[in-house]
Computed example of a mutant assay.
Amino acid sequence: MLNKPIGLLDSGVGGLTVLKAVKDRLPGESFVYIGDTKRCPYGNRTKEEIITYTLELVQFLLDQQVKMIVIACNTATAHALDIVRSKVDIPVIGVVGPGSRAAVKTSASKEIGVLATVSTVESGFYEHSLVEKDRDVKVKSLACPEFVDIVEENDYESQRAKQLVETKLAGFKTQEMDTVILGCTHFPLLAPFIQETLGKDIDLIDSGALTSYEVERVLKEKGLQYEGTGQRTIRIYTTGPEKMFRTIVENWLETDQLDIGSVELERLREADV
């Protein structure tokens, strides 16, 4: 059981930011990642679609014999985390909780911004999570679906991306806001432009990266952390075109020593968690 891989799922490439953080923190562990790039973005989907797609990805990971599942997608976490936990008998971690805890701890003014997808913003999941941890917190959210698109297009380092961020965030920051949550795992790839636009006085919270601490904590708590000496494996799958996906994966994870493949949607649709 201990040498089984950790499974991660996302609507596309954004969850790679989580995978990078977790693999760096846990160098002995193996991983299986699936990005549903064919149906990305999830942030514009209905709640029912998000739940259905997430459960399909969960079953794929279960078929890979994973010992833990990380929902490395804020939208899927907001709508499907509790449902997934009720259906599987291994630990399931989302990305909203760690980010919320860090934001509340970081913010001195108690005025926190959230940048997320349309569906995550409309769900109110972050606001509920933040206020649950501190009733005095004030939350201002902004849906940024365009950010997901430009990351999936592998254009997140361009002048076009910079201009998009500047235009989208114009007027978002309030006088008292001192902390902003990157409430979509795609957004850290745009963090340099977001930081430049909002100003160096704003603390950016990368909810995905912080999830690595939660993964480590739960593995230790459940006695699941692998401490052997065997060579780890990292298998990465996409439901969409493999060429651009591979380019983004290799650039972000800074290696070409990866096992990358594709999965047909028909295979996922046969899933039944």
Rank of each mutant, 00 (worst) to 15 (best):
F31P: 07
P27T: 12
D256Q: 12
E157C: 02
V118L: 07
E227H: 12
I90Q: 03
Q64A: 11
R101S: 08
V137W: 13
C40M: 13
Y126R: 03
R232L: 09
G183A: 02
I69P: 02
A116C: 05
G94P: 02
S212W: 06
G171N: 11
C40D: 09
S100G: 15
T17R: 00
R235V: 06
L198E: 04
A143G: 05
V66I: 03
G28L: 11
T233D: 12
S119G: 14
C40A: 15
D178Q: 02
K23Q: 15
S129I: 08
Q64S: 13
D134W: 03
A161T: 11
K162A: 10
S11F: 08
N154G: 06
F60W: 09
G12F: 04
L16E: 03
T247M: 06
V249W: 07
S11R: 06
L26P: 08
K140I: 13
C40W: 06
D178F: 00
G14S: 00
S158K: 04
M177C: 08
D206W: 10
A103P: 02
V118I: 15
I51E: 14
E227N: 14
V218I: 15
Y156S: 04
D203W: 07
V22S: 07
L164S: 04
E227F: 08
D178S: 00
C40L: 15
L26G: 10
T255Q: 04
A209M: 07
I34E: 09
R85G: 10
I202D: 09
E242P: 00
P145S: 02
V118H: 06
F245N: 05
L189I: 04
H128Q: 13
E270V: 08
Y213F: 13
M1W: 06
V121H: 13
N74P: 05
R25P: 05
R160Y: 14
K47V: 12
A108D: 10
K67R: 02
T238Q: 05
P41A: 11
T239H: 06
T185M: 03
V70M: 06
V148L: 01
V249G: 06
V88D: 10
W252A: 01
V249T: 14
T255V: 04
D24Y: 06
F172C: 05
A80I: 00
K243M: 11
K38V: 10
T117I: 10
K140P: 07
L142E: 07
T106C: 12
Y33H: 11
F172E: 08
M244D: 11
Q175S: 13
P145L: 01
R101Q: 15
G124D: 13
G43W: 07
E132M: 15
A143R: 02
L9Y: 09
P192E: 13
I205D: 09
L26C: 07
K140F: 13
S30W: 12
G124R: 04
R85E: 14
V66H: 02
V151L: 00
T106N: 11
Q195L: 10
I50E: 05
A108Y: 10
P188M: 03
T179G: 05
T229H: 10
L265V: 09
Q231G: 02
Q159M: 11
L2I: 07
D256S: 14
T46F: 11
L26Y: 10
F31L: 03
V88M: 06
T211C: 13
